[in-house]
Design a protein around this nucleic acid. Sequence first.
RNA 1: AGACAGGUGGCCGAGUGGUCGAAGGCGCUCGCCUGGAACGCGGGUGUGGGGCAACUCACCGAGGGUUCGAAUCCCUUCCUGUCUGCCA
Length: 415
Amino acid sequence: MIDLKNLQNNFDEVGEKLLKKGVSTESLNEIKTSFQKLKEKRTALEVLQADQNKQSKLFGVYKKENKDIKELQAKLAENKKNMATLQEEVREIEETLQQKALIIPNIPADTVPIGVDESENIEIKKVLDIPTFDFPVLEHSDLAEQNGWIDFKRGVKLAKSRFSLLRGDGARLERALINYMIDFNRERGYEEVCVPLIVNRPTMTGTGQLPKFENDLFKIEGEDLFLIPTAEVPLTNIYNDEIVAKDDLPVKLTAYTPCFRKEAGSAGRDTRGMIRQHQFDKVELVVLSHPDDSAKIFDEMVKCASDLLSSLGLAHRHMNLCTGDLGFSASSTTDLEVWFPAQNCYREISSISNTQEFQSRRAKIRYKDTDGKNKFLHTLNGSSLAVGRTMIAIMENFQKADGSIEIPEVLKKYM
RNA sequence: AGACAGGUGGCCGAGUGGUCGAAGGCGCUCGCCUGGAACGCGGGUGUGGGGCAACUCACCGAGGGUUCGAAUCCCUUCCUGUCUGCCA
């Protein structure tokens, strides 16, 4: 959630940035007036409450001393009525304000390039040369079927479209990748965590998936529970409503989980192959950081994911996402795009974001600073790598003329 | 899933309608004591909101209700423990 006080105090400046992210002027103005009104009503209510508290104490004293309480009683009852009205008003304003504030996206950092959509993302650098082939390259879906690694048809039969299953060496490669990635991250100081795949509404709200994106989530019928769309959700919310000791920062976590996404609104996109599925595996990085360190940690996380790709021998590039392509919770994001020879293009395989205080304010994750005050920390998240996409990148990049696939050296001991 | 018992500050734990934001203890911290430390003694020590401040409001798992007044009574709900059931 954005800082409402900040919006109030720097309305033009902050508002302008939010307008670029698609927030309407009306809703900004509504928030501004609601916030103001809330303050007024609350102050008025508190004056009444203070009076009521005092008089009520007096009431007790009078009774003990057998004084006449009729007059006082009448006054208290009258006051109570006024309080109830104000209380109701305050509650209503709070609720609407909350509703509106929770669907306002994060404000892009100053380092984020201005742009409308992904075409205006800025390439930061390329890593490794793209491979060349002296034979016609095949798409991963063909390679997978040839090698018996992926069964698309039966995945659909078992569940529905956008599901598949891995078999034999395909399944083993998936598992090898997961183990390799977690070990890779662990060696870089990330604690391995195994998290619930089903989480509740407050958890989903803490990281920003709810209330705005309920349609993208798989919901458990009859329960207010959801399948996680990324391990970022449980990992970040581990410290929901907690105060982390300053000395414990940064908290660096990594987890492997399946991820579940409805992919509402992607009808027709990437229908062939395993690029976009309802269920996919991902190894995730999450860091809770002191605000002063988050920029440095962000770079570390990008390097961690990029080095991982390099270690697998996969050519990729770093993209600085522009304002229009930034996700809801992110203040800045670097995407890593891996080279897909058959599609002759780079495609997203990892996304590292700094949400700054946006998530910690929602999830109430704070640290105790040296001045004794509790402050919101910064949360960062990044795919170590999307495992499925890594697998198909390996298939396409390391295919041989006979259709077989060379396993990257670092994975061999995991197979 | 059913029965019973509970959920109070960093922790333990008292508190069954009135001056309780909450006794007492532990821990932590500051000061004294000491050559230094332990012990001992004295002070401080929750969170969030509003206000320049004095101060003030809210919070005793959460949400409702009763009352002039609720940690305390009632309802709902979540969680924990024990027993039963079921299972990996």
